[in-house]
């Protein structure tokens, strides 16, 4: 299993603390930087922001599993038997998120259709106000 010597192992612990700490600080920094907290009015585009965040988190997850949970020192088969099944979630994530998007779109569509019927059946009154709670004009 190739366990490390005690003194080496202690070093790995310190190294692990440093790496996880630095990555966490980096994550928070990117979050604040990307949302305009550090340079006022500057925002990172989502195409950059999301992958950076997800990448850093996946690195943290990798580090915890491989170093702290000793997966690196286990037989490869054990690592695969635990890690490969999580790939089943990839399709679940794609399908669920696609579904979520489509619920949102459908809700939006229903909203629009609801408005259409109101326009057909009700004429605006003289004050220009509808019974729809969104359309009041200031006189």
């Amino acid at each position: 299993m190739g366990h490390l010597e005690y003194s080496e192992a202690k070093k790995v612990v310190v190294k692990g603390l440093m790496i996880l700490g630095v990555v966490t600080i980096a994550e928070v920094f990117v979050a604040l930087f990307g949302n305009g907290h550090i340079i006022h009015g500057f925002y990172l585009h989502k195409i950059v922001f999301y992958p950076v965040m997800i990448g850093l988190s996946l690195y943290k997850a990798y580090f915890i599993v491989y170093e702290f949970m000793h997966m690196r020192y286990e037989v490869k088969g054990l690592a695969m038997s635990v890690l490969l099944p999580t790939l089943l979630l990839v399709w679940a994530i794609i399908a669920f998120f696609q579904e979520g998007t489509s619920w949102g779109k459908r809700r939006e569509l229903i909203h629009q259709k609801d408005k259409e019927t109101i326009h057909e059946t009700q004429q605006p009154s003289e004050t220009g106000m509808l019974d729809d709670d969104r359309t009041y004009q200031i006189q």
Binding site: A92, A95, E99, S102
Partner: peptide, 25 residues
């Protein structure tokens, strides 16, 4: 065993699941 995890929505074709994703299922 593997396929059983990627086909679940075929129970839901008619319950409002997005038709696009249905194709894959």
């Amino acid at each position: 065993g593997f396929l059983s995890f990627i086909v679940w929505a075929h129970h839901m074709f008619m319950s409002g699941v997005n038709p696009f994703i249905s194709n894959f299922f």
